[in-house]
Amino acid sequence: MASNEEQLERMLRRALVPVEPRPQFVTRLRGRLVHVQGSGGASVWTLVAVGAGLVLLAAAWMGLALRLILAFVGIFSLLGNRRSTRASPRAAS
């Protein structure tokens, strides 16, 4: 019985010898995995850069719009002042 078991174990050892993958496969898969991980990292940074760019662009537009509004308000108030200064001497005379 024991010798049968030993014999079977010997046969199993011979039948199940370790096999090696092709070296090209190992190298190519490594490259692919490292590339996937590398490109994953880059895409996160791209998202951050795009997000930051959009925020800056929105802030710039808002700043420009605010300046334009203030400029128009300034111009209108200046025009209003001129009209009132022209009108006031006539009214006085």
Binding site: P21, L29, Q37
Partner: peptide, 14 residues
């Protein structure tokens, strides 16, 4: 760290 994963891969792929 892709190199760390690469090392793990090298150790276990076979």
């Amino acid at each position: 760290d892709s190199e760390a994963f690469g090392t793990l891969y090298e150790r276990h792929v076979r």
